[in-house]
Computed example of a mutant assay.
Amino acid sequence: MDGRNGKSDIYVYDLSTHKEIQITNSESSKEFPAIYENKIVWEDSFNGSSNIYMCNISGDESEIKIPVANFSSNVTEDHAPLSVKFTDLSENATGWNWNFGDRTNSTKRNPIHTYSLAGKYTVRLTANNNENGTDIKTSEIKVQSAPRETPCGFNLLILGIIMFYLFRKST
C-alpha cells in the first residue's frame, strides 16, 4: 500500500515484466475487491490491523498437476543374480530418481537393475515435477541365495541305484 499521491493506493510489482501496476485508486472501496487482469486484491481488518490480500485468478490456466509416484516390477522375489525391470506408473512426473536399496541409483524412467547378493532391498522411486513438487513410493525386493545345483552325473547315479534296487526286489 502506497500513499505517494496522498491517497492509499495498492501497487503490485510484476517480476516477470518488471513493471509496477496500480491496482486501486482513491475511489476504490475497501469493502469490495479490486480486479486488475488476473489479479484480485482486497483489504480486510483483522484483530484491529489492516491487511492486504492478493490472489491470481484465471480460467485459462490448467490445474496444478502434482506428481504421484508409482511403479511396478516384473519380479519381486527370486534367486541371485536377480535382474529386475522397473516400470514407471507415476502421474504428472517429469523426472525420476530410483534408489535400489543396494547403494546404486538411476534417473532413467524405466530402469533394469541386477541384484548380485542375497538380501531384502527397499526400492524407492522419487517422482518429481519441477513446478509442483515430488512424491515417493517404496517397495521391497527379496533376493535369495543362488540355489545349489546337483551335478547331472549324480542324478544319474541315484536313478541307477533306484532302478537296480527295484529290479532286484522284483526278482
Rank of each mutant, 00 (worst) to 15 (best):
K85F: 06
N155R: 12
T126C: 01
V75I: 15
L117W: 03
S29F: 01
I52A: 09
W96F: 15
L82N: 13
I21Y: 02
E140S: 05
E61M: 10
G160E: 00
S72D: 00
V84K: 11
A118P: 12
R124W: 02
L117A: 10
D60G: 14
H18T: 07
A118V: 02
I158S: 03
G153W: 05
S145I: 02
P81W: 14
P111F: 03
N38A: 10
N130S: 14
D78I: 03
E77T: 15
N47F: 11
E149N: 10
S50N: 12
K85I: 04
V68N: 06
F46C: 01
E63L: 13
T107C: 05
M54T: 11
K142R: 12
T87Y: 07
L159Y: 04
A34W: 04
N92F: 09
S50G: 02
Y53L: 09
G133Y: 08
P67K: 07
K85E: 03
G95K: 12
G153I: 10
G95M: 02
T122L: 09
T104R: 15
K120R: 14
D135P: 04
P33E: 13
Y121W: 08
L157T: 09
S116L: 11
Q144N: 12
N110C: 11
Q22F: 01
L157W: 08
R124L: 08
I57V: 12
N99A: 09
E149I: 14
G48P: 01
C55N: 07
S145G: 02
T122K: 10
R109P: 11
L159Q: 06
T150L: 09
I40A: 14
E149Y: 10
Q22K: 13
S16N: 13
K120Q: 10
A80T: 08
I136H: 01
P151G: 09
L156F: 09
P147I: 04
N132S: 08
L156N: 05
N97V: 07
D88Q: 07
N38T: 14
R109D: 00
F154H: 06
N129E: 02
I158H: 01
N155C: 05
I64A: 11
L157M: 14
R103I: 00
K39H: 10
S73R: 07
K65T: 04
T107F: 08
P67T: 11
S28V: 03
L15N: 06
V41P: 00
A146T: 10
I136R: 02
N129K: 03
N92M: 01
P111C: 06
E37Y: 13
Y36E: 13
I136D: 13
D14H: 04
N128G: 08
A118M: 09
T104W: 01
E91D: 05
N74P: 02
S116K: 15
E43P: 00
D14F: 06
F86E: 02
P81L: 14
E77D: 11
V75C: 07
D135A: 10
K137Y: 03
N130Y: 03
E63Y: 13
S62E: 00
T138Y: 01
N97A: 14
S62V: 05
W42I: 06
L15C: 06
T17R: 08
P81Q: 10
Q144D: 04
V75K: 15
G101C: 09
S90K: 03
K30G: 12
N97S: 11
V143W: 03
L15G: 05
E31K: 00
M54Y: 03
C152H: 14
E43G: 12
F46Q: 04
K65G: 00
T126S: 07
L159G: 15
K108E: 04
